[in-house]
Design a protein around this nucleic acid. Structure first.
Lengths: 169, 169
DNA sequence: ATTTATTTTCATTTTTTTTTGAAAAATCAA
DNA sequence: TTGATTTTTCAAAAAAAAATGAAAATAAAT
């Protein structure tokens, strides 16, 4: 396998992987492409490499910028926008964890609080069982949420340090 | 909000959540429904509650059984199959982590090993940059993989203990 | 062995998601 | 301000994913 084939395979596989995690396949491919590109790329570069439309590049690049995974850069003597991805894998992990926490974990907790005290016969088995489930899940979610929050606020390299410390123990 | 409304809302929201993580919405709803049901449910119970077809119930229940999140149970004096979900949230988390590790993390690592040494001019900037990316990602993936493996093999309550210990530190 | 109850399969339909591409908007230079 | 370049939007088209439901297969009872 030569270098170009390896790049191609990485981009394709990363796209498939992303799809399994609920990420638009093109967005994952685009992220993979920018991740392995030493130089920043223009919309045209991306359109050509991934064989996708201008609109598609634009939408998915914007989404990656929203996640903080990609930034826009300008080259001197050139009007076009170029895109450059974060290269540090631990920083990438942190950005993703932070974003999913905000978008998904926090809303779950709000929901579970809301569902914690429904009206109904509080002595029925059915009622007790439901409330117990919600409580368990809320405790779980809060534990994860607090831990993630603490880790994000701590050292830039929290995730690395966490796993290293666990391996040494 | 009464009990039935709360149950309904939980099932719907959990379904939406699952979809964001690449899980079939119906599968996530079905899991939510079984999770909050004290009693095991039959195919008919599920069809009626979620308003979905028999085939759909069958396919998604099988998938949940594959993940180890649901088991088939038989009631005496009754020929039908009933389905019962794991209720312990930490055990659920463990089952999901274990399965995603096996299905996704391990294949990534194989890929990264394969892509680590492509043919090409080993002195070019482009070559060095790609190999460096693959190496970083492989190290990251292996750290996560080893940690997860260690945790799964350890205490049944590894994940809980992990986060508790982090909070105390 | 036959009937009845139940589960599974899978070709077709439906729904949802993603992509396209051309028009509109924005940006910049002269 | 005008014109050239580039980006963004979004209705429509295409593709992908999920659901249906009836037939086939399986399992149990008589």
């Amino acid at each position: 396998m030569n270098l170009d084939e390896a790049k191609e395979k990485f981009v394709q596989t990363w796209g498939g992987l992303g799809a399994q995690w609920g990420i638009n396949k093109t967005m994952a491919q685009l992220h993979a492409l920018l991740f392995i590109s030493a130089e920043s790329l223009s919309t045209e570069d991306i359109m050509e490499t991934l064989q996708i439309s201008r609109g598609n590049v634009n939408m998915n690049v914007r989404e990656l910028i929203d996640w903080g995974l990609v930034q826009r850069v300008n080259k001197t003597g050139n009007r076009k926008d170029y895109y450059l991805a974060e290269k540090d894998v631990w920083k990438i992990a942190k950005l993703i964890v932070r974003e999913r926490k905000k978008r998904e974990l926090e809303p779950i907790i709000s929901l579970l609080v809301e569902l914690g005290k429904p009206e109904g016969d509080k002595n029925s088995q059915e009622y007790k069982s439901f409330v117990e489930s919600m409580t368990q899940l809320k405790n779980f979610s809060e534990t994860i949420n607090n831990s993630v929050e603490r880790m994000i606020k701590a050292d830039e390299n929290w995730l690395g340090n966490l796993f290293l410390s666990m391996l040494k123990k």
